[in-house]
Amino acid sequence: MSKTILSVKNLDVTFKNGRDSVNAVRDVSFDIHEGESFALVGESGSGKTTIGRTIIRINPATAGTVTFEDKKISGVISKELDNYVIRNIQMIFQDPMASLNERATIDYIVSEGLYNFNLFKDEQERRDKVYKALTDVGLLEEHAERYPHEFSGGQRQRICIARVLAMQPKFIIADEPISALDVSIRAQVLNLLRDLKNERGLSYLFIAHDLTVVRYFADRVAVIHQGELKELAETEELFARPLHPYTRSLLSAVPIPDPDVEKVKKLLVYDPAMHDYSVDKPSWRELYPGHFVRANEREAAEYAKMYA
């Protein structure tokens, strides 16, 4: 695989509210390679979105570092670098109904980033950039004059993607980009994201809870539960040899559109209390090449036997 574009090292994110504090993310580390789509999978409250938001500096990191193109981008950084991060790391949000300014035209929405960073010489160039972004996502130039309410959910998500593309980022964080969309529209948006990756060599952090989509879209998958990574592997490897009990419960829960299989499926339930970490402490272990799991000595031995 090619070189690393983004690297997260021992990241902790803690939210404080008076005396209460919540460790939303605990000691998370992973690397994302150039041109790769890396998926972060977990249930709501697992901290997957928090990691995405920490990377683009919406949430501050409590400990640990985020590195983008070998530059540290977490903590206090220069204004210049901050601008660089905003331009090169862009985020697509889950709900296209909530992430567009209802009172602005599509033209303004798509060019807002261009205005903020003066990324155009003259009006002509700005227009060209907007039209280019719109046509890239399968919309028409004439849509620029319209308002968000005139579009369907799938079209709105395309507008969100166009807004991201206008900045010509290198790295895109897609936070559940298709969960709010209808089945038939999902395929369109997924195809679009995939084409953009192939044509421009974009790298993705794909945040999702739907494993069927992840399997189709991602090159590597990390499974997160209660703020901690539990398992990380190449997509097919993870689906073929899931090791951690949480990963296996997630996989068993995905409804498969195949009634004969689905009707007899056994649901696995994960109970974190099953781990006995009182003496034998868990660590991040590589059981197969590139396939990591969080386990202690005894569990690692069990997992190794599982697919022997």
Binding site: V183, S184, I185, R186, A187, Q188, L190, N191, R194, D195, T212, V213, R215, Y216, F217, T235, I256, P257, D258
Partner: peptide, 15 residues
């Protein structure tokens, strides 16, 4: 249009 049946790397069928 189900992603389960699609081959990786091939476009998904969109209506």
């Amino acid at each position: 249009s189900l992603p389960t049946l699609a081959k990786k790397g091939e476009p998904l069928y969109a209506i």
